[in-house]
Every structure is written in structure tokens, then in C-alpha cells.
């Protein structure tokens, strides 16, 4: 399960999560949070080995088209409809170190803003050649990339007229279970970002800006696909040199 992590294994506990940077649990503007938010204080504990460790996935689990959403659900010879884009970036930790072997899984609506899901009720059309999921694993320097179509914005039942800006959902594994993260990526220049109740669960504007991928003209492939760059930062670790019990390092 682990050709992913060739770096020297690290065993330090993670930096505490900055709970003011993340959204709080209860955000009434996003109505579903009202009944799904814990209301008691979290029990704080410096990480133990149960959270410092975590599963690592090998590149061998990936299929050839896992990072190509344009083709991984399409019939042979066909492709998904929409604006062809490449999303690429690095996974780093808070110390700026590359996280190699990080598994990223992504999912999104099609170009019309419609998900392939039985509970989806938006009237936009399904694309028979678009499934909406993909995955990649970062290389030795933390780089990943995938190809997809730009998802459309879609309405959702929250306020009377709430719409989600175009976005891609990301799930990320680092090397420790405490780093486990799910987030969403938005696109530079989209005026709908700032109207979205889910985006606005985050209070700090800089934390929102970190979720917006800039158009990366330099990496755009002529006559094929535009590129967007999205770096992801996972929690950093303390050096075990500072710990009471010396191990590793």
C-alpha cells in the first residue's frame, strides 16, 4: 500500500488546526449546518500515534484514465462536453514541504451544472459521457494534475435563489489521519464566489482566496485546454527533535 512515501517517515505531531481560519461548525446561512453541527466544545488533545499515522496509497492503484474526467466515463472514441481544462498544483504542508504520495479524489458537476446522482433535481441535462469523478496521487515533489471540463454553476435549495459558483470538490490524504481534508476549488474571476453561502461559511477572506485557482496561462496547452493552478496546504508537523521521546529524526 505504500510506494507513495519515499521521504524519510515523519513522526511528529501536527500543528494544531487554526479553528478561526476554518469555518465554524454552526453557520446558519448554510441551513443544513444547523442540525448537523456539534454544539459542545471539541476535546483537544495533542496528536497520538492514532492520528499521526495514516494510510498511504501506491501509484499502482491508479487506472490510466483516473485523472482524465473527459474520458474516464465516456464511450470509446467520445468525450465529455464542455470547456476543456487542466487542473494542476502541488500538495505542501504548512512548513512548505512537498507531500509526496498524497491521494487526491475529485468530483464535480458537468458543464451544465448537473451531477450524475439519483437525488439530483436540477433540470440541466446529463452528459452521457461524463461521470464526474477522478483521482491522482502526487509525485515525489508533491505535484499532481488532471484533465476535466469546467463544471457549470448550479442552483440549490438553501435560500430562495442560492447558486453554487463553479467548483470542484477535493478530498485529500496526507501521511497522517489528522491531515485528512475535504475542500472545494473555485475559479478565478467568478463573481458568484462571493454570493455563495457555503463559501461564506469561512470568515477570513484570505482563507477563501486560497480556494480560488488562478488561470495559469503559461501552462495552457494551445488548441487544447486552459490550465488552472490549485495548490493545497495540509497541516505541518512538529519536529520530533523537540519531543520528549526521541524517535526517528
Amino acid at each position: 500500500m505504500s510506494d507513495g512515501a519515499k521521504q524519510k517517515p515523519e513522526t511528529g505531531a501536527f500543528f494544531p488546526r487554526d479553528r478561526n481560519w476554518h469555518a465554524p461548525a454552526l453557520t446558519p446561512g448554510y441551513k443544513t449546518s444547523v442540525l448537523r453541527s456539534p454544539q459542545k466544545a471539541l476535546l483537544s488533545l495533542d496528536g497520538t500515534i492514532s492520528e499521526i499515522t495514516g494510510p498511504v496509497f501506491g501509484h499502482s492503484m491508479l487506472g490510466e484514465l483516473d485523472n482524465d474526467l473527459i474520458h474516464n466515463f465516456a464511450k470509446p472514441g467520445e468525450s465529455a462536453i464542455g470547456e476543456r481544462i487542466i487542473i494542476h498544483g502541488r500538495v505542501l504542508d504548512e512548513r512548505g514541504r512537498a507531500v509526496s504520495g498524497a491521494l487526491l479524489e475529485f468530483w464535480q458537476a458537468n458543464a451544465g451544472g448537473r451531477y450524475r446522482h439519483k437525488k439530483e433535481s436540477y433540470l440541466a441535462a446529463l452528459d452521457p459521457n461524463f461521470g464526474g469523478c477522478g483521482r491522482a496521487i502526487t509525485d515525489e515533489e508533491g505535484f499532481y494534475s488532471f484533465r476535466t471540463i469546467k463544471p457549470g454553476p448550479y442552483p440549490w435549495p438553501n435560500g430562495v435563489n442560492d447558486w453554487r459558483p463553479a467548483h470542484i470538490h477535493f478530498s485529500v490524504f496526507g501521511h497522517g489521519f489528522a491531515q485528512r481534508l475535504i475542500t472545494q476549488m473555485y475559479f478565478e474571476g467568478d463573481p458568484m464566489i462571493w454570493k455563495c453561502p457555503i463559501v461564506n461559511t469561512i470568515a477570513d477572506r484570505r482563507a477563501i482566496e486560497q480556494l480560488i485557482a488562478p488561470l495559469d496561462w503559461a501552462n495552457t496547452i494551445p488548441m487544447d485546454a486552459r490550465a488552472y493552478k490549485f495548490d493545497i496546504i495540509l497541516r505541518g508537523r512538529r519536529s520530533t527533535l523537540f519531543e520528549n521521546r526521541m524517535e526517528g529524526n
Partner: peptide
């Protein structure tokens, strides 16, 4: 130090 990417639902 960098800031952890904010979580979203």
C-alpha cells in the same frame, strides 16, 4: 509557515 487550506463541506 503556510496556512492550511480551509475545509469546505
Amino acid at each position: 509557515y503556510l496556512k492550511e487550506t480551509a475545509s469546505q463541506t
